[in-house]
Design a protein around this nucleic acid. Structure first.
Lengths: 193, 193, 193, 193
DNA sequence: GATGAATGAGTCTTCATTCAT
DNA sequence: CATGAATGAAGACTCATTCAT
């Protein structure tokens, strides 16, 4: 059975593919609203499918969570390329971190999932390490190559820290995201101190 | 006819105050291990009392959480006085923030509770604002008075951010606290940038 | 240990007697408001005593219920004498039944207790049979002696039926008692049919 | 989600339909034995299903109660048609009221539910008003049209009173129903007085 | 005697997961 | 494959009753 995120989507029936997409979209919304601990049924209902269908594609709850986050991580990683092309290294670093901040801001539970130590999230953590961490590493390196003084820091830890700072609870994103951005700004400033 | 055995030292019912203390101690441990969402029964069992006793003293789950956190907040606030007496303002600031970091590090759920927006936690949030925030304000002011360049920052937000950075999940505190301290260090550095 | 309702109240300490009275008053009110299934603690609090005190005087819940109802039954029985002295037999019958109706109307649970079959209520049922039933018997007999045509009916059943008709639930006594009185009136009319 | 008692039995899975029926049968029995306050689990066990199944079909306890009573109300209403066809108006009135009496006799809690004022029972009360009350109205009217002298009475109140008179507690239905019928008979006699 | 803290069985209710249709 | 009905474990909370102070 191919993973729904497998590299061979063509082997999946068209209607199945649609269901997977609907589930991912629904899960993204539900997670943003109610966190990743939201009832599975809520996601299924939002997607307009039965819970059985959800379980078929995502046998474990963590599979769904991972899939949702992975999709967005990809978009975030892709954004780095554009940003690097458009801005000088130092500014690119800041801009991408802010882009990442915005990504995490709507991912209640991402940070918790990454840190949970639950083996079910190892694939997600691996994806994080494989995709996001190298992106930040590259940006840090470029900035240093461009002559910026940047404290030695673990990219992995730094990204985790930023994710933590976005733990805004359930409130209005307006206020929360302002707070998150200010604090991430402080973190970035600390990098140059 | 009572046999000599009948005088078995049946567990004497504990005094109310003792029970409350036992509950707070137990809750502190349980929260550190399993988070504030741990089953109420777990806390009661750990404290060696019935659930009814827990409910008598803490009718709402939030009452228990608040009480646990408040006790530790007090200790943290008290520590500030000692630190201020022993170190120059700038160093006192850093040291107290680290002391606060250690406090929060074992308080999984504190940050979530403070940010939850749940009115049940308003007393706790109020306590936070009344006790911890002024402490940091004072330390920041002293440092600025001593001539340090410190970015304008909301003490409330800053303390919230530090709490977020301590979201270490359930793993070994060794690794987690190293991470938290490094990131808080970055935040403090950012303050001086 | 003398029953709190014993005929030798002098053997009870004055403060104990006061507590019993306070409990009976409180229970009467609580039962009227919330029914006889109201939490025991509510009664104790309303009376301003500890639950332990309540249990000392009324070891079983049914003891309290019985005591409350008994007190009022006595008043109702006593009223019959006055009514009989003031009105001709036929009218006395009607008036006393209405007096009884009013008594039961505020006794949510009386009827249920009498019919429950629970042996704990046998003393209450016995009191009912010993006091109220003979009262109605006498009134019926007097009316018949006075020449009224009255259907043969079991006084016990009749009083039970009236109690049932007062089962007004928790609503405003205004509407409920109007209803109860109209239906009891029908029952009385049926007696003469 | 269609109500299990929905007027349009949308294609409910056969097994689901069976479960609903089993639950209604079980609830009917349990209510008759232990009243409508019986533990939910008891009903589920009697029906041979899990509690979750019960909650699926009857999210609120009142839903189950209402459904049980509604089913029987329907049968009672239907009986009126047959009775009217077979007997002259006056006798039909008496016979149907007795039929209704038998229905209520095994419905401990029906009267309480109707009178509770709890909004959850409004649908049930509405059903009562919509189905049973008009039935009695019609019978009363027919009897009056046939020349019988019948006191002006609210059909709603009258049916409620009969229900009250069936509050027989948990005892042997033999004795209880004899009592109920005699008292209802008295009520009917009162109607002609 | 009075008190109220402690106990824990009993209930309700939710929801992840399985599996018959 | 899709569906959603069924299951039951798990957790919250209440309250009658006991018993140490």
């Amino acid at each position: 059975m191919p993973s729904p995120e497998s590299a061979e989507p063509r082997r999946m029936r068209a209607d199945a593919r649609q269901n997977v997409d609907a589930l991912l979209d629904a899960a993204k919304d539900v997670f943003a609203e109610s966190g990743v601990d939201a009832p599975v049924r809520t996601v299924a209902e939002r997607a307009g499918v039965g819970v059985g269908t959800l379980y078929r594609h995502f046998p474990q709850r963590s599979d769904l969570i991972s899939a949702v986050f992975r999709r967005e991580m990809d978009a975030c990683v892709d954004a780095a390329v554009e940003i690097e092309a458009a801005y000088p290294p130092g500014e690119a670093l800041d801009r991408w971190v802010m882009r990442y901040t915005q990504f995490v801001a709507t991912k209640r539970g991402l940070s918790a999932a990454l840190h949970s130590g639950d083996s079910a999230y190892e694939p997600l953590a691996g994806y994080f390490s494989t995709r996001l961490v190298p992106t930040l590493s590259r940006l840090l390196e470029s900035a240093r190559d461009a002559g910026e003084q940047i404290a030695p820091v673990s990219p992995h830890e730094f990204l985790g820290a930023v994710a933590d700072l976005c733990h805004s609870g359930a409130r209005s994103s307006a206020e929360a995201s302002g707070r998150a951005e200010r604090m991430v700004g402080l973190l970035l400033a600390g990098l140059r101190a």
